[in-house]
Design a protein around this nucleic acid. Structure first.
Lengths: 112, 112
DNA sequence: TCCATATTTCGATAGTTGTCGAAGCATTGG
DNA sequence: CCAATGCTTCGACAACTATCGAAATATGGA
């Protein structure tokens, strides 16, 4: 993961509403959550939510897909793993935990 | 670690010069690095460097101590571990790597 | 004491970010 | 084809952030 990309990912998560949204998406797993549902759960106007989701998408931390009228967002676990890997390697003394633990959706956790 | 504190830590790291400075501090270990040395290594004016170091300190990611005329900054591994723990628990599907791996200064790594 | 060194604080300024209503676009149902 | 729904884009504005020179503060040595 390039430093530039790391900065964007960290910036994306370094905001109250975006961190909260991302947590919800991680909990939701592959199934994802619609933009409107996130807006309602976080009590944020749709246009603001859209702005924040765009930032998360730009950082590569979430993916989006249309499903009928809704746009469903999902956490990108691979991107989050990359970020964690970078932080572990470069900001944590270099002890890697990605060798023996990866980040997975909670749905996989339960079945694993 | 409180969400508010997480946001501050992420914000602190979400900046080119600060991320670079923190990486250098992590590499340096307990010994730390003087503010002026960081400024020179990163090619940033002293006043700018001071501003960034204050942000890292405010986020609790670094500690400072005076040593003669210099102010020595050191990475706070415990704070970084807390951050990693929060991210692992809340943004990563909940698979914890802090159970079997902690973040330590590179000096400890070599001797461990 | 006086000067040099190391760093921070202050102040001005440019740029970026967050907010949110209004308007626009895509999709579905009548 | 029209209206309703779901979401995004646009535009304006306030708030925050980064930058950096100049001045202030702290320390150590002559």
């Amino acid at each position: 993961m390039k430093p530039d990309c790391v900065i964007r990912a960290l910036s994306a998560l370094a905001q109250e509403h975006r961190l909260a949204a991302f947590r919800l998406l991680v909990q939701a797993g592959e199934q994802g959550v619609a933009a409107g549902v996130l807006a309602e759960k976080l009590d944020v106007p749709p246009s603001s939510m859209s702005f924040h989701l765009a930032q998360l998408a730009n950082a590569g931390l979430v993916t989006q897909r249309r499903e009928s009228r809704s746009i469903i967002y999902s956490a990108d676990y691979a991107a989050m793993n990359s970020l964690m890997g970078y932080l572990t390697e470069n900001c944590c003394g270099g002890i890697s935990c990605s060798e023996n633990a990866e980040c997975f959706p909670s749905s996989q956790r339960k079945s694993a």
